[in-house]
Each structure stands twice: as C-alpha cells, then as structure tokens.
Design a protein around this nucleic acid. Structure first.
Lengths: 241, 241, 241, 241
DNA sequence: TATGAATGAGTATTCATTCAT
DNA sequence: TATGAATGAATACTCATTCAT
C-alpha cells in the first residue's frame, strides 16, 4: 500500500489510514504522516488544506464503494438475503485485502473533537443502515423475512453483530478468517429471521460467480485512483448494469 | 454526579468519565479535569501518578459491578436466558441512570496509544464475553438453547447487537428507552436461539423482584466509594442476601 | 525596565513593549518574549491566555495614566490651555523616561489582523481626542480660544502635530528633547488659536510646580505594579484632590 | 484597479497595495497576492526577486508623483501657500480616487523588520518634508509667512495635521470628504502663519484651472505604467506646460 | 492537600523561497 | 512565463509532568 506509483494526495490518505489502524485517531498527526511519507510537514499542506480534510479523505476512501455496491445490488435485483450477503461479503473482502481500512469503522467516537468528520462518518453509517433496512423491508414484503420483528431490530442485530466481529478480528490481530466468519454468522441470522428454510442458504458465494456481480466487484478492486476525476462518475466506470 | 460528598479521587474519575462522554478520549486532558474540578492541575497528581492511572480508573469504574453481577447470577443459579437478561438489564439500568459511563464502552480503539489501558479494557470485554459464553454453553447443555450454533456465534450476536444499540443510543442523544429497547431485542435473539417457545419470555423483570437480586443490586447502587480498598473483594461488601 | 523585582506578568508586558519598540508589532512573537525573559514559551501561557491578551496588556499599560490625567485636569479646574499643556507634558515626560512605550502610539495600523487590539487602541485614541476636544470647547466658551474655528479642527491640529513630532523623534532615534519640542510647538498652536496674547504663555512648567499636580504625577510615576489589584482604584491611590 | 490591461508586475504592486490597505503589512504575504491575482506563488518570483522588492515597489508607487509635483510647483513659480495647497490637494485627490494607496502612508513603523523598505519610506517622507520646508522658507523670505516661528515647526504642524486627518479618514472608513477637509484645515493653518490677511485665501482651486497645472496633473493621471523605464525620468514624460 | 510557576516535547499551520519542468 | 511540489524555519498554542512552597 501507499506505493510510489500513486499520486501524493492518495498516498497521504493511505498513510493516514495506516496510522489510524496502527496508532488510532489520536496517533494521526501531520508529523507522523510526513515522517512515513518522508516529506516535510509543510508539503502535506500542498495537498490538503488542513488535517480535517485528511480525516474526511479517509472516510471518503473508507466508503468509496458504497454507492457502487448499493447500485449493484439494486440493479441486479438481488433478493434481500442475497443483497445483504453480497454487501457484507464485499466489505469483508475489502477488509481482508486491506485490513487497515477496517479501523475507520470505529473512528466515530474518536472524532468527537472533529465535528465535521464525526458527522460525515455518521452519514456513512446511516446510509448503510438505511440501505440494509431497505433490503430487510423488501425481504419482509416478499415473504423472505419474518414480519414478526420490526425491520430496524433485524438491522440492529445484523449490523451490530458484523461490526462486533470486525472489532474482535482487529483486537485478535486478524487471526481468523473474517469473511468466512462473518458470512457464517450472517447465515445464522438470516436463517433465524427467515420464513422459509432454504437448503442453499450458505451458497451465497455463488453471487460472486455470476458474471455481472463479478464484473462489478472487479471494477471496484481495480479502480486506478482513489480520487475520481471530476465529471467521471464512479458508477459509470463500469459499463454494464 | 461528581458531587462534593465524594472523595477527590472519586470525583476526578467521575469527571474523567464525563469528559470522555462529552469530548471523547482525545478531549480528556489534565487541564480539562482540573478546570472542571476547580482545582489546580498539579493537585491531580496528588491522587494519580499519571494520566494513565486515571484512564485505568475509569475502566475500573466502568466495570466495577461486573464481578458482583457475575457472582449474583451464579449464586442465584439463574437459567441461561435469565442470567443474560439480568446481566444486560443491569448494565442498561446503569447506563440509563448514568449515561456518560456508557462512553467507556467504546474507548478501546481510542486507547491505542495507551497500551495498558487498552489491555485492561480488552480484559474487561473478554471477561464479559467469557461469562456470557459460559451462560450460553450452560443453556445449551440444559436444552434451553440450540446446539446447532456454536456458543461463540451466539455470544457475538448478542453482545455485538447490544453494543450497537448502545452506540446508536449515544449517537441519537439518548432519545429512546435503552433498557426497554435492548431487552426487547434480546428477547428476539433468545427466542431465535431457543429450543422451547416460552410464553413468559418477557417476564425477566421478575428477577429484580426476587429478594436476593434486589439486595445485590441495592448494594451496587448504594456503594459509597468507587474504589474498593485492596484486599477487600467487592462482592464481600454486600452482606449477602 | 523589566527588572526582576516585578511580577512575571508585568515583566512580560514590559518586554512586549520593548519588542514592539525595537522590532515592531510584526516582531512581537511569543518566542521573542520568552527568549528575552529567559523562560520557555509555554511559561508565558501561565500568565496570558494568548498573544492578543499580551497586546491588550501593552495598550492598557500605554494608556494606564489616562484616567488619572484626565481626572487631575478636571479636579484642578485647569484652564483649557493649561490642561492641554499639562496633558501633553505628562505624556512626553512619560515617553522621555520610557521611550519604548511611545511605540505603542503607532500600532493601530499594524493591528489590522488583531481586531480586538485594534479596537482597544482606537478607543484609547478616541478617548484622548474627546477629552482634548472637551478642553478646547471649554476654552472657546471661556473666551480663551477663538470660536472662528471649530473645536474638532483645533484638536486635529494639536493632536496630529504632537503625534507627528513623536513619530519623528522615534525615527531620529530620540535625538532631540521631545517634551521641550512638543511644548514649544504647542505654545505656537495655542498662541495661534488664542484670543488673548498672554505674556506668560510659556510658563506652563509652573503647573508641575504646584503641589497638587506634583503629587498626582508622583503617584503616577511611583505606582508599584502595572496591574492594580482588584478593588483598588488607581485614582484612589492618591489621597488628595 | 488592478485590471487586466496592466502588466503583471504592475498588477502585483496594486494587489500588494490593496492588501496592505485591507490587512495591513502583516497581512501582505506572497500567498495572498498570488491568490488574489489567481496565479501561483512561484509566478510572483518571475517578477520580483523577493518580497522586499514588492514592498519597495509599493513605496515607489506611493511616491511616484512626488518628483512631478515638486517640479510642477517649482516650474509654475507658485507662491508658498499656493504650492503647499497644490501639493496636498494633489495628494488628497490621489487618495480619494484610490483610497487604498493612503495606507502606505502609515507603513513605516510596520516595516521595522524590513530595514530597506523602512529606509526608503523614510526617504520619501523626508523628501516631502524637505520640499515643504523649502516652500515655507521661501514664504518666509517673501513675507508671506511669519518669521517668528521656525520653518520646521510650521512644517511639523502642517504635515502632522494632514497625516492625522488621513489616518482618521481611514479609521472612519472614508466617511468624510478628505480633500475638502484637509484643504479647509490647511487654510486655517496658513491663515494662522500668514503675515497678510488675504481675502482670496480659499481660491486655491483655481490652481487646477490653470492650463499648466491641468496638463501636469493630466499626465499624472493618464500615465500608462507604474514603473518608469530606467533612464527615463518621469518628469520628462510630461511634455512640460 | 494544594498550588503557582515552570518546562520540553509536541500540536497544526504558515511563511518566503527554490527548483525541476 | 508559468506552475506543482517541495522545504526549513517559524508561528501560536497545548500537553503531561515536575517541583519548590
């Protein structure tokens, strides 16, 4: 990560993520970034107006696939359980490939002195919760999920559980297979809230084998720069629906 | 909270908790504590060797009822679901009465530059997880909970869900009834993992009406000092009901 | 100046004045103060919340005799020309004894990035102008000064002229007798605006020989601290009227 | 001001003047100039070797009409009071048309850390004082002005008064008619130092109506570039009236 | 128990200036 | 002519901690 082929601005963000991962938000100082990038502290201000902009950059980076993932799930017309599984599978794959980024998940409480960053992080989480809630409601409407439990509770359970597994994965120094663990726990929950007992419940992996999703994810993982040029919508980058 | 009848040392801890709640761990400075306590900064060093000791103090305070609660549950020979419900009901009651303390729940990631505090927090969480796991396993043995799911997964789901609800309660400025919300979500989960469908699933509140529990909780709520003298086990403090 | 018998807070102000004199407002940095005081930069913040407070301190110091001077002139029931002469004689004596303080006279334009200091300086100047204007009007009423010219113009001329002489005195490294020069120029102006040709116009020095004024000035020049204790009014310090 | 038809070098100077006016000398930074000119900071160094050169440029600009004005007064063989009035009328007209430039009047004290600029500003002021002094002496020789007062004092009074009016005009946000105010105050002073009571004392305006002065001023106001080419004396530029 | 004064190391940020392109 | 990237030194200010009283 943070290699030399990237633009300085991108490298600064990656370094910031790395520091947040290793030292926490408290350890993220301009000096630390500069030292790891082997440039002067002043040089950083060529690329970011202030530290808050860097913080916001890490959040944007952290959430940069959200719109694409949400859109893919919608466009593919996935079932609720399929969509939820696809969503978290994508996130976990992202985290497994780039564990440091998972640290950003837990910055919100640390951003208390940075209201702008705090708010943006809250928005990211809220968007995710809203989208999952939307999937759950769809699942309830289509008879996939029980209607005995309000969708919000199901969302709390699913999201909270996953967040907690990520937290423990981090605390335990990534010593278990995150995606596998999350997906198997998710399957338990989906089973629990399901109205039908599906045999192929655990075959979620198939989602990735489908042509379209694969290409969608592909575009996600090969995207050349963190910061899309203006006018270029990241969703447009992939040409297929 | 933080009234004048308490000892200075206790008041400092309470003030520290208050600051962590309002400003986050980053906002917890000696100056801030001193200013809120209206004493000099130097005075604080009369009571704590350094800032880390204060952090450890907040963690100890945060977890000060744990041993008591665990022992109570054991002594009362509660059923698994009863014990879990009692445990979280107690915590939520604690948080509702003293919302600021709930902030400590989420300090772990922020303590990255304070390895000692980080470790102690991790121990607290691990102890709780272990205890809940112990209850779940007991429940599985006694046929209360399904054995189809490994206990650890059940623990992840229960604990993660509750943590997430607390987090959202904080983010939403305590605008919903925490205990009620947590208990109703818990009942969903217990129901989901239960082998028997119990009608009186929601009568958990009865636990508090039992003599023993009441006295146990009582001792919890009236305990005069935050810091137990060495050698005195906090469980011994209550005269046992 | 800035000797060791004074309190640190006072010494910082005096050092600040000295720096403004030698290096200008631009040269007034916390580092420079600290270095001249041979203390750490951080130590300065024990005594002043920020740099602006120091700036305000120099202005307060600069204008610290104003109220006393105004009151003395009023209480003594001096004639207009007597009062004006007394006022500027006092200022020039102050500047001759402590040339550096005269630098503060010309800080206003330099305070453009310090709106609070700028405003306070403006207030000081405005107060002086108002008081002189009040004297001139009194002089006009009592037939001392011509009524053909509006009082404001007379004030502009008197004040502007004196300020300019001080400025040149500074530019020329104090190489002429400031008080003498100012007073002789003042006598020209007073003569010019006078309705009566007085022979003893230049005997202004007599003012200082009078018992009362002497004691008033005395209290001014021997005041022990820059910063009066609360409750002690500086005018009360002299017991006679 | 600072329009696009000017050369970049000139535009930079005008922008510098504008900044000195609005933010003071402290606010004059390369970044601020670059940002207002919408060019890079480095670009400025194409035109000026360093910041000091820019400061010197503003002073040169500020005083760019001096030689022309002095020569015009000499060539026209104006009377002393006529010359003084013409001089200040020209300056005030300049300031009224371009208020920002009046800020440079008061930069001297702020240039304490820029000895070269400070010296050049001092030279400008000294030249003006010398020229006015020369006029006053001429007036005294020709019986216009009283010989009871030394010429230097008259100069101090005139110059100091005018400077102070300009300063207040700036402090009061240009809310009075500067030229009018200065000229009427000047007429008071000239009257005061005059040996003869002239009825047409206030007809100074006629100066501008004379053919010669008009053309002189004209050349002043239409001069295309701020910076005269080397070797070309600016007085030669006007075709002489 | 308390405090006033102090400090060294660190915080984000700004500055004039340089240089390769 | 212009610029993007860089920098060393400085800016005001904060931090946890110490120590004499």
């Amino acid at each position: 990560m943070a290699n030399n082929y990237m633009k300085r601005k991108d490298r600064i963000i990656l370094t910031a993520v790395e520091i947040i991962d290793q030292l926490g938000v408290q350890g993220l100082t301009i000096r630390e970034i500069a030292s790891r990038q082997e440039i002067s502290e002043a040089a950083i201000y060529r690329h970011f107006a202030n530290k808050t902009e860097i913080l916001l950059g890490t959040i944007d980076y952290f959430s940069s696939y959200d719109a694409l993932l949400f859109r893919t799930i919608e466009n593919q017309n996935m079932k609720a359980w399929e969509g939820i599984t696809f969503l978290f599978a994508s996130y976990m794959e992202y985290y497994e490939n780039y564990p440091a980024i998972s640290a950003v998940n837990f910055t919100q409480e640390a951003f208390q002195l940075e209201p702008e960053a705090r708010q943006r992080m809250e928005n990211v989480i809220d968007d995710r919760l809203r989208f999952i809630n939307h999937l759950v409601i769809k699942g309830q409407k289509e008879g996939e999920f029980t209607r005995d439990i309000c969708s919000e509770s199901i969302v709390d359970i699913i999201f909270g559980t996953v967040q907690f597994i990520i937290l423990r994965w981090r605390a335990k120094n990534y010593d278990f297979a995150l995606k596998e663990h999350v997906l198997s726990t998710l399957s338990i929950l989906i089973e629990a809230f399901s109205t039908v007992k599906l045999e192929n419940r655990f075959v979620w992996g198939g989602v990735f084998n489908q042509e379209v999703s694969a290409s969608a994810l592909d575009s996600v993982l090969t995207r050349p720069g963190l910061f899309l040029e203006k006018g270029k919508d990241q969703v447009n980058e992939k040409s297929e629906g």
